[in-house]
């Protein structure tokens, strides 16, 4: 055996890091998670608005079907100033936000513990699975008439409807979060002396949090759809009602104002959940 090169040490100079420090890199997670998409989205949005402006400005589409961006903006100012369909704009928006906010809070408060329990306990699973699996696939609007008959035309029926629509995805997500808990992790906690309650609070809940947050995002999507549809049918306040009233007068520009408000609200909610994810589960996909 011959020694080829005993001193294989790097003999060059260590590259100086310069004034700005060395170029740091990081391990990308799977998928696009972590890469910024804001600019791409902004460009897409402005292209869409540009196309909208173009087809209306040059009369390619009648303004009865598609109002001009400027008209919608103007209508927004008018509605914000004078109200619409018998109520100030803030009341319409407030009514919708109240309904979805209350229903979401209730769905989260009930869905997370019940879902976790269903993932852990045979009896909870056996008892709750049947009603949930029965009602969850139904379109919420199909049982809205029942809600109205049982609970009246007021807020209770709408909030209940929304609660039911949003409860199931959160509950199912919490269940699947429990199932994805590696058995070794639970065993590790038990050998560290965790009681059942501690295991639940310190291991099961944080472990299920990523999936729960995904469930909440889905629930909010379902919630907005259900809310507006319910307001179209049975309401005297709310953004859905505003859209319905405007449609009866073929006020397409006001319809657009309503749609824009919904999309801003829904976007803010989704963004809030995304912020919560960044705050609560920064380790997502890395453990």
């Amino acid at each position: 055996m011959t020694v080829i090169d005993k001193l294989a040490a790097f003999e060059g100079e260590v590259p100086s890091s310069g004034a700005t420090g060395p170029r740091t890199v990081r391990m990308p997670a799977f998928g696009i998670s972590g890469q910024p998409t804001t600019l791409i989205s902004l460009v897409t949005a402005s292209l869409l608005v540009g196309a909208w402006w173009f087809v209306t400005e040059y009369g390619l589409v009648s303004s009865l079907f598609l109002p001009r961006p400027a008209e919608v903006l103007h209508q927004f100012v008018v509605v914000a100033r004078d109200g619409y369909a018998g109520a100030p704009l803030i009341d319409h928006v407030g009514a919708s936000l109240f309904r979805i906010g209350l229903a979401a809070a209730l769905a989260i408060l009930a869905g997370i513990p019940l879902g976790l329990l269903m993932g852990l306990n045979r009896f909870a699973k056996g008892i709750l699975d049947t009603p949930i699996e029965f009602y969850w696939p139904l379109p919420p609007l199909s049982y809205l008439p029942l809600m109205i008959i049982w609970l009246g035309i007021g807020e209770t029926s709408k909030v209940t409807l929304l609660f039911l629509a949003m409860f199931a995805p959160i509950c199912l997500a919490a269940q699947s979060g429990v199932r994805s808990l590696p058995v070794e992790r639970a065993q590790a906690a038990r050998t560290l002396g965790a009681t059942r309650l501690q295991l639940f609070a310190h291991i099961v809940l944080p472990g299920a949090l990523p999936e729960i947050l995904t469930g909440i995002r889905i629930a909010l999507g379902v919630g907005w759809g259900t809310l507006v549809a319910a307001e179209l049918i049975a309401s005297t306040r709310g953004i859905g009602f505003l859209i319905m009233s405007a449609a009866q007068f073929l006020a397409t520009d006001v319809v657009f104002v309503g749609i824009a408000i919904i999309s801003v609200c829904a976007f803010s909610f989704a963004h809030a959940v995304r912020l919560a994810e960044r705050l609560l589960v920064p380790w997502r996909g890395r453990g």
Partner: peptide, 18 residues
């Protein structure tokens, strides 16, 4: 049953990522 009088080191990584 499991208890804190017996410490276990697993082959698989069982640290809590959070």
């Amino acid at each position: 049953g499991p208890g804190a009088d017996r410490g276990v080191v697993f082959q698989k990584d069982t640290l809590m990522p959070w």
